Computed example of a mutant assay.
Amino acid sequence: MEVDIQKIMELLPHRYPFLLVDKVIDIVPGESATGIKNVTINEEFFQGHFPGKPVMPGVLILEAMAQTAGVMAMLSQTEAAGKTVYFMGIDGAKFRKVVGPGDTLQMKVKTTRGGGSVWKFDAEAYVGDTLVTQAKLTAMMGAE
């Protein structure tokens, strides 16, 4: 299963400049998914992070991983309509490599607990075959 940006915008409330996932592929509802973010020099955060040496902020990579997890969670529950996925926690975050303009970020998330209102994920972000960020994420699916 794969979803494009239009479907992502139906599932998540995020909008530019905070929508950080361009598409989600390899979705196995309730289990796993891979988000894709094409990082371009046009990203607003590059103006200040850092002038002359553009680096995608690690916290935004974590947010992109969380958005990928949110899309997968929303597609996993028939009762998800009208609900929002809220980011609750981050554990063990590690930033291993710099992400910059021209990179294609792949956020791979795997459910470690799900199906109810609280979900947990193991998340990793890659550029090519290189692991750039990893973390354990917790989210809550709640009513709007």
Rank of each mutant, 00 (worst) to 15 (best):
Q67E: 00
E144A: 14
D26E: 12
K136M: 15
P57Q: 01
V55W: 04
Y16H: 08
M141S: 01
I90M: 06
M88K: 12
G70T: 04
A73L: 15
M65P: 08
G100L: 03
A123S: 09
T133S: 14
I8K: 05
F46D: 03
A64R: 01
P17K: 02
L105D: 08
M140L: 14
G82W: 07
G142I: 10
G102N: 11
L11P: 00
A125H: 04
T104S: 10
L60M: 04
T78K: 14
D26M: 05
P54H: 09
F18K: 03
A66E: 02
F18L: 07
E44K: 13
I5K: 02
E43L: 11
Q134H: 09
A69Y: 02
R96P: 05
V21Q: 06
A81T: 15
N42H: 06
L75Q: 12
L11M: 03
T40E: 02
A64S: 14
G89E: 04
I61R: 01
P57N: 08
Y86W: 02
G114I: 09
S117I: 08
D4G: 14
A33P: 06
L19S: 01
G35L: 02
M141C: 11
V71F: 03
K53S: 05
N38G: 00
A93F: 00
W119P: 10
A64G: 08
V99W: 08
A33M: 07
E79N: 14
M88R: 11
I61C: 07
G116F: 03
D103H: 09
P57H: 01
K83T: 09
P51G: 01
E63Q: 11
T112K: 12
F18W: 09
G142K: 10
F87S: 11
Y16T: 02
E124D: 12
E63N: 05
Q6E: 11
E63V: 05
K136I: 04
K53V: 08
V55Y: 07
M107N: 09
A143P: 04
L105R: 09
S76M: 11
Y126N: 03
K37W: 08
T138K: 14
G114F: 05
A143L: 11
G52F: 05
P54Q: 10
F95H: 03
G82P: 09
D122H: 15
L20M: 15
I25D: 13
H14V: 10
